[in-house]
Amino acid sequence: MKTGIVVFPGTNRERDMAQAFRVVSGRTPQMLWHQQDSVEGFDLIVLPGGFSFGDYLRSGAMGAHSPIMKAVRQFAEKGGYVLGVCNGFQILTEAQMLPGALLRNAGMRFLSQDCHLKVEGRDSIFTSGWKHGDVFRAPMAHGDGNYTAAPDVLDRLEGEGRVAFRYCTAEGQVKDGDEHVNMNGSARSIAGVLSENRRVCGLMPHPENLTEEILGGTDGLPLFNGIMEALG
């Protein structure tokens, strides 16, 4: 498997992401500068967390217009796999490669703490490392993670099994209105979604930061194991 990690000016979790892939595969992904206009030859493109272009406009809005995003879009249209985490998820929605948008957190503050996620997506390499309904822990670190979309879009995402992850309690209970569970106020507690062909995935929390016991746990490993199993 050949993985490329896109670096925009202001990206800051590219090393975390590379480390997670190194833990499961022993191989270090290649960093791709946002100015390049091709992503040929890769099996997976990752848009990592950070503050692309400072996110001084809407989060991800500038990043979505970087030269490399044209190539990433074409790559996805041809069936390539794309994973966007945190700012990467924001960029994928701004690029309209995933539906919805990420608003300012409901509490209007940056949130940096662990949350629990329930695995709901089906038929995707990004959820195949877990069993359907599994609950795992992941750190979140964002100011704009409040997922929103029109009700019919949300219905469709749910109907098609394209809600990849939902915020929940440690026991797996989803509580939309509870600020201690659905901390950023996301519509229907959605933390991650899949594209129609299930090959593009975006999520807000950071499984890449929980891939070694010494760093607080391995709850995030199944994401990378599932990808590795599918793409080799």
Partner: peptide, 13 residues
């Protein structure tokens, strides 16, 4: 401290 990103960098023990 919940408003400070304490994990970025991937080395926080």
């Amino acid at each position: 401290w919940n408003q400070y990103d304490s994990g970025v960098g991937g080395q926080t023990v």
